[in-house]
Amino acid sequence: MESQSFEEAFAQLEATVAALQDGQIPLERALRYYQEGMELARYCNELLQKAELSVQQLRVDGNGALSLDPLDL
């Protein structure tokens, strides 16, 4: 989970909730889904908390090659 993007983690969270919605699954499995879901939600929240915008400048050199340089603004 630790390398997942927010979108991936959130999609998985939604899938987990959908699975949980099925009232027919055994309680034990439902509890496991629940735990997984809560873990995913925590991870998503953490990603949103820690995120920092990256800013780069696009440059083109004499040969027409493109490069990205970090830009501190």
Binding site: F6, F10, L13, E14, T16, V17, L20, Q21, G23, L27, A30, L31, Y34, G37, M38, A41, C44, N45, L48, A51
Partner: peptide
């Protein structure tokens, strides 16, 4: 808006808790 996402995560989280509570309650 990342705040909307925060809300989304919270909403899903709450839905999940409600569902579990419901399940336990009905049992």
């Amino acid at each position: 808006n990342i705040d909307d996402w925060r809300t989304d995560v919270q909403t899903v989280q709450r839905a999940m808790q409600d569902m579990m509570k419901q399940r336990l309650h009905s049992l």
